[in-house]
Amino acid sequence: MILTLQYQFITFAVARIPDSSPFSLHSLKLDDACALLQHDAQNIEQEADEPDAAYLQRLIDGLCELSLKDPLTGLNNRRHFCSVLERSIDIVARSGESVLLLLLDIDRFKSINDSHGHLAGDQVLREIARCLARCLRPMDTIARYGGEEFAIILPNCQPVFGLAVAERIRKTVAAHTIPVSPLLSLQVTISIGGAYAPEWVRSTTDLWIERADKQLYRAKSRGRDQVCLDQPRELSVSAEEKGLLFGHLLMDEAGTRENAPSDAPKWENA
């Protein structure tokens, strides 16, 4: 959605700026945009040989990127997370791929803020964000979901591995020491709740989040620093059963090799 808006804006802007026109970038009010990007340590100077339209495009790209990020942690923000979640649920519905959603909440975060101040709290958030990002694959999406809550979308994550992945994240965070001042380091734990998107059916992101949230609540009420996953219902078929199931495939192959016997049934025997 954001992309389309961006496109429309660009086509609009570019269409209005024929090369020959005496148009100048100075007539646009770009100061706020530049200030925002500069604050994010992005290069906003126009290169000497950069055409106006290209420069404008670069500014817009920068702003779009900015609009998807959480300023404190640099992670994706909730808006971006929701659009990825929306896309994931569509993919799962039609492909049956296993996608795991994890909701993570820092345990007793309020007491960190209360006893060490908000700056320490912010430092904890930043450090945990970095720590989480290191645990993940490039294809995963991690976001700051709310105050001290994070969310992770793990595409292509088989149900048998879900718990191990979530546990690895939990343990990595618990083992991490966070320096909040020269004299003070903290160790914090997180609780994790997770749920797989329902396969082959259309569901809603709300229902999916609700399922994960319920598990997060379970993890909290069981004493925190834990992982609880909503297990998908399994269609369990043992290896032995599978072995027997596919006997016909071998027969099928043999059949095609032997040029199908003449008394084999034919289509259109009606």
Binding site: L244, L245, H248, D252, G255, A260, P265
Partner: peptide, 16 residues
């Protein structure tokens, strides 16, 4: 993809 394979598949599933 092969006429008659449905019955073979059914028998196979039935056996399992």
């Amino acid at each position: 993809t092969r006429p008659g394979s449905g019955q073979a598949i059914t028998n196979q599933l039935q056996q399992v």
